[in-house]
Each structure stands twice: as structure tokens, then as C-alpha cells.
């Protein structure tokens, strides 16, 4: 079993967050609700649950290889860490405005997951994001669902990430690299793409 890095969850674990979702977030846990890392992870977990439930529907779910879901869930806690501060410019030199790297990774993951037929795994920002105007590259790992044309799916992911980063941040994104690690067929074990 792979050991999860859960340092971004402010002392909580993915199991706790998963149980919390099972309970419908009732009663509200103030410590979880007050943790940005937990909030980012909860949103990602909800998307993974929705997608994997529809993908592995019915009886086939019991026999399917859920390893790819575990891999994605593992990456959620890693990406939820606050990480570096990404500056937001302001005309007042005494202003200290920033977005956390964790918030931006969460944004990227949500953008990728939103295109349909894809779930985002690990997400990485390469380059010095702490310097305004410095070009950076975004790397994401993705699982593509069976029946999707991989180049089209990757292009949709790229477009969504460019769109959302352009809207919410001042990052200069030189490239978005999408690596498709596997293809998931409904109710069958994961397959390596050609």
C-alpha cells in the first residue's frame, strides 16, 4: 500500500474527509471547514466520487480495478498543500497580495475535471511562480475514459486550464503539458493508452 502524504490537510486525513462526505458534511466540523487544504481536497474528492460512480456502475463496480482512483485520491492530498505564494500585483507597493499554489492547483484540477471524459491526477507548476511575469509550465497527469479520443481530450483539458488560469491569476503560462497515464473502461481494469 502506498503511504499518503497528507501534510496539506492540517492534521486531517483523506479517510476522515471521505467519512465526512459520507455523512453529508453533517454535523459541520469547524476544523475541517476552516482548513483551506481540506476544502480543496473535499471538492476534488466529490468530483472523483461522482465520476468514478458513473464510470464503475452497477455490478461491474465490484470487479473493477479501483487502483487508478486510489492514485488520483493520493494526488489530491499532495496538491492541496498551500505551497508557494503566487503574487497578485497592485499599484500600492505596501500591498501583499497572493494566491497559494494549493489554491491554483485546485483550480487547475477542477478545470481539467470539468471537461468531461477525464479525471486529473497529479498537478505540478514548473518555474518560479513567486516572480511576477516569469513564464511557467503546467504539468498534469490525466486518466481518460474509454471511448474518448485522447488527443481531443488532452486539448480540451489544455484549453480549460489556460482559460481558468487566465481568468483567475496573473501567471504567464508558457505551456500546459497533459500526460495521459491510462484509459478507463466502464467496469474493467485500467489499460495503458497507445
Amino acid at each position: 500500500m502506498t503511504e499518503l502524504d497528507e501534510t496539506g490537510l492540517d492534521g486531517h486525513t483523506l479517510d476522515e474527509l471521505s467519512d465526512y462526505l459520507d455523512r453529508g458534511r453533517v454535523p459541520a466540523d469547524p476544523a475541517i471547514e476552516a482548513s483551506p487544504g481540506c476544502q480543496i481536497a473535499l471538492r476534488a474528492l466529490e468530483r472523483v466520487r461522482t465520476v468514478s460512480a458513473s464510470l464503475l456502475a452497477g455490478e461491474a463496480r465490484d470487479t473493477a480495478d479501483d487502483g487508478w482512483v486510489a492514485t488520483i485520491i493520493g494526488s489530491i492530498s499532495l496538491d492541496a498543500r498551500a505551497g508557494r505564494d503566487i503574487p497578485v500585483t497592485h499599484s500600492d507597493p505596501s500591498a501583499r497580495l497572493s494566491l497559494t499554489e494549493g489554491a491554483v492547483r485546485g483550480l487547475i484540477r477542477a478545470a481539467g475535471d470539468s471537461v468531461g471524459g477525464v479525471l486529473i491526477g497529479r498537478c505540478r507548476l514548473d518555474g518560479d511562480v513567486t516572480i511576477p511575469g516569469e513564464p511557467i509550465t503546467v504539468h498534469v497527469d490525466a486518466s481518460v475514459f474509454y471511448g474518448e479520443r485522447i488527443p481531443d481530450a488532452a486539448q480540451r483539458v489544455r484549453q480549460a486550464i489556460y482559460r481558468d488560469l487566465g481568468r483567475h491569476t496573473e501567471l504567464v503560462v508558457e505551456a500546459v503539458d497533459v500526460t495521459v497515464h491510462d484509459v478507463q473502461a466502464p467496469g474493467t481494469p485500467g489499460r495503458t493508452p497507445r
Binding site: P36, R43, L97, L99, L107
Partner: peptide, 15 residues
């Protein structure tokens, strides 16, 4: 604005 004051605003989650 004032040079005697810093205001830090950090966005920790989006969405």
C-alpha cells in the same frame, strides 16, 4: 495607503 502599514491578502482556495 500608507508606508506604515502592510495589508496582506492571501487567497487560499478557489471554487
Amino acid at each position: 495607503p500608507s508606508p506604515d502599514r502592510t495589508i496582506s491578502v492571501r487567497i487560499s482556495s478557489i471554487g
